[in-house]
């Protein structure tokens, strides 16, 4: 076989294989999206298009707005706490020496070593002691804690990648370290902060087992837990239409955020932060 023809055959092989696989990967999502707006359940009787599934989901339990609000609160707490804490901590670890620095770094990384489902039972007891059981804030704090190792690593690397000269000049001019951070460094580490925010948002929005254990009041459930109740609460007669519209509702924010910020997502892999 001549070389150009060989290349053409390879190229055709690549595109046909990839397209077939792409269809396979997209099909579960596309089917769920379609059947949430099409069919007898969705159209409320006929066999056309309709939003009856979403209407039933809207009024399920405490109502979809409540669940969306709860999930948003948890995600916001997790993202804000993770970004602020790891930016300050990353700055301190990357640029200064202070007592207990190595210990803090090691113990934070040890969070990665400890499988997180195993410490949920003691966390449940502990949150009860400090009055944060059945609390969206408490849940957000716990989820933020699990994001600290990745965040600290990411932010430390971000600070270390910046040249020190600018900062030294500002310090010599009498700027305080806090001023340097705010006026000089923050712009440089902003991409790292977006990466940390993205990872913690996806984790918090989708978290299932922690809210399942920590939240006991139905009006405080997050969307994944509410959807689980929708599926398991009525054994035998699951409302698949409402369930599918719920899955779509839960997935759309993540897919959109990911598509918009995927460059930052990939940074999380290439910066070596995942390698711990």
């Amino acid at each position: 076989m001549s070389r150009p023809r060989h290349r053409a055959a390879r190229s055709a092989g690549f595109y046909s294989t990839s397209t077939a696989l792409a269809v396979l990967f997209l099909f579960p999502m596309v089917w769920t999206l379609l059947s949430s707006v099409h069919g007898r359940q969705a159209s409320g009787g006929g066999n056309g298009w309709g939003i009856a599934d979403y209407k039933r989901l809207f009024h399920y339990g405490s109502g979809l707005p409540t669940y969306l609000f709860n999930t948003t609160v948890v995600s916001l707490v997790t993202v804000c706490v993770t970004v602020v804490v790891t930016t300050l901590g990353g700055y301190a670890v990357a640029r200064f020496s202070f007592p207990g620095k190595n210990l803090l770094f090691l113990v934070t990384l040890a969070i990665l070593m400890v499988p997180y489902t195993t410490i949920l039972v003691p966390l449940y007891v502990l949150l009860g002691w400090i009055g944060l059981q059945n609390s969206l804030i408490g849940l957000g704090l716990v989820l933020a804690m699990f994001q600290l190792p990745f965040g600290l690593f990411m932010m430390r690397n971000s600070f270390e990648a910046l040249p020190v000269e600018l900062e030294e000049a500002a310090l010599i001019d009498g700027c305080t370290p806090t001023g340097v951070l705010r006026r000089v460094l923050l712009r440089g580490v902003a991409p790292g902060m977006v990466t940390v925010a993205l990872f913690s948002f996806l984790a918090a929005w989708n978290e299932f087992v922690a809210p399942l254990i920590f939240l006991t009041d139905g009006a405080k459930f997050t969307l994944p837990v509410a959807l689980f109740n929708l599926q398991s609460g009525s054994l035998g007669s699951v409302d698949f239409g409402a369930l599918q519209s719920g899955v779509v509702t839960a997935a759309v924010p993540c897919v959109v955020v990911f598509l918009l910020l995927q460059r930052y997502y990939v940074r999380g892999f290439t910066s070596g932060a995942l390698k711990g």
Binding site: F25, M29, P224, Q244, G246, A251, C254, V255, Q262
Partner: peptide, 19 residues
Amino acid sequence: VFFLPSAVGLASASLLFYG
């Protein structure tokens, strides 16, 4: 496209496949 399912939460993915 290959990555997209990873943006969907594991619980949501499980409910999706349950359907």
